[in-house]
Each structure stands twice: as structure tokens, then as C-alpha cells.
């Protein structure tokens, strides 16, 4: 089977081609990985930025974090909807997935969030990231998590690639708004 790759299509979307079945399995549980209680993702993904200025922490909690959590939730919904667009190539028995270009930021961020959460759940270290997962007959949960982190990272890499080939700045901060998510108005 050919290697997976991402291609920019003229209709305004990027297609991931030649995805093996186990990539699909991994992507389909992406919303499940991300769908957690607010208090569980708060510290893991959005720690207070004012670690060394306690007098400003409340400001961050009040203005910045709610917007970040809201944006995170919106992106999970985008991913959930896009995952309905899988197609199968009957010749190669591989899968493809169409992602609107306007959703690419959401995908890149959500893939990173899922990798971080998996890493956090299983105590993944830099040394773990430098080795292959041990996948024997009954692999440990951590090894499965390492495999998932690796696959999601590969998808992230594929989605970054077409952007490098096309014009700079193509993926703007569209879904963040011009001034970002923490503008206090």
C-alpha cells in the first residue's frame, strides 16, 4: 500500500490519502480522547499563564481561560463533524479524509491536545518518545498510548506538510478571530 500523504485540493480542502485502517481507528477515537470534564483539561492544557505573578492569576481565570475552553470545545465539534467524511479507495482498500482548509488550525491544535492528554495520562517522558512502542501480544496501556501518540503525530505532520508547500500565511488564525481568544473587550 502507498504511504499516507496530504494533498491540497482545488475545492478548498485538504485530503489525507492512503490512510491505513489502524489510522482510521485512531482518528475516530480522537473526540473521545478530547471529550473530558472541564476540570480535567484545565490544568493539563490551559495552566494559568501567570505562574510567577499570583496577583494576576485571577485575571487569567476570569478572562482568558473561559475563552480557551470554549475554543477547545468548538474545535472538538469540528473534528467530530469532519470525521464523518471518510471515504474508502476500493482499489487499495485504504481510506481518505477530506478536511476543509478552514478547519486545519482546529485539526492541528486538536491533534496536539490529544497527544498531550495521552502523554499526561500515561506519564510519557522524552525517553519514551525516543523509542518504539513495545507491542507484544498483550501490550501495556502505555505502549498503546505511545502508538496512538505516534500515529496522531504522523497525521499532524502530514497536515503541516502541504502548508509548507503552498503560500505562507495560508492558514491564518481565522477561527481565533483577529485579536485572539483572550481579548477582554
Amino acid at each position: 500500500m502507498e504511504e499516507p500523504y496530504a494533498a491540497k485540493e482545488p475545492e478548498g480542502h485538504v485530503t489525507l490519502h492512503n490512510l491505513p485502517a489502524f489510522y482510521i481507528q485512531c482518528l475516530l477515537i480522537l473526540p473521545e480522547i478530547l471529550d473530558r470534564r472541564e476540570e480535567d483539561i484545565r490544568e493539563a492544557l490551559f495552566p494559568n499563564a501567570f505562574q510567577q505573578a499570583p496577583e494576576l492569576r485571577e485575571d487569567w481565570e476570569k478572562y482568558a481561560r473561559p475563552d480557551l475552553l470554549h475554543l477547545f470545545g468548538d474545535r472538538v465539534e469540528i473534528i467530530r463533524e469532519d470525521l464523518k467524511n471518510f471515504g474508502i479507495n476500493p482499489l487499495t482498500l485504504s481510506f481518505n479524509l477530506e478536511i476543509p482548509e478552514t478547519h486545519l488550525s482546529a485539526w492541528l491544535a486538536s491533534l496536539n491536545a490529544a497527544r498531550l492528554l495521552l502523554g499526561d495520562d500515561h506519564g510519557v517522558t522524552a525517553a519514551d518518545m525516543d523509542r518504539e512502542p513495545i507491542l507484544d501480544e498483550e501490550p501495556a496501556e502505555k505502549e498503546i498510548a505511545l502508538l496512538q501518540i505516534s500515529i496522531l503525530g504522523h497525521v499532524q505532520h502530514l497536515l503541516l506538510e502541504p502548508r509548507e508547500k503552498f503560500q505562507q500565511g495560508e492558514l491564518d488564525l481565522g477561527d481565533l478571530g483577529e485579536d485572539g481568544p483572550v481579548e477582554k473587550g
Binding site: 495552566p47 499563564a49 478572562y63 496536539n112 481565533l176
Partner: peptide, 14 residues
Amino acid sequence: EIFAGKLQSFHLRT
């Protein structure tokens, strides 16, 4: 604060 928020929205530890 705006920049830190944007970086955190992409899940960089900031």
C-alpha cells in the same frame, strides 16, 4: 496576555 492565549490555544505550554 493576548499572545500567551493564542499560544495556549494551540497547546504550547506558555
